[in-house]
């Protein structure tokens, strides 16, 4: 599984939780706290669910509440032990 880029993370966050509430220069984005960007714990849970679907990486709930910045999240995704080990999502029976 290819590493997740900052750009991909930003697109994913906008898709699941909307545009950030603060204008932040792209160079500073990785280290800007989620609270400043307007992403609360629900937004991060939603992002984690989407990351699990698209990247096959499961982020434990406890880590979701620990991470502060996009860089923290990227480190978790790209360095996560067991990344790619997630079983394929089971489709609901018709």
């Amino acid at each position: 599984m290819a590493a997740m880029t900052l750009d991909e993370l930003c697109h994913l966050l906008v898709a699941v939780a909307g545009e950030p509430s603060a204008e932040v220069a792209s160079t500073d984005l990785a280290d800007t706290e989620f609270t400043e960007l307007g992403y609360d714990s629900l937004a991060l849970m939603e992002a984690a669910a989407r990351i699990a679907q698209e990247y096959g990486v499961r982020i434990p709930d406890a880590d979701i509440f620990e991470m502060r910045t996009p860089r923290d999240l990227l480190d978790l995704v790209n360095g996560a032990p067991g990344a790619g080990d997630l079983p394929a999502p089971v489709a609901a029976r018709p």
Partner: peptide, 15 residues
């Protein structure tokens, strides 16, 4: 989404 993809696909905001 729940019926077609599964619980993980349901928006947390549904809560």
């Amino acid at each position: 989404k729940l019926w077609t993809t599964g619980p993980a696909a349901v928006s947390v905001y549904e809560s």
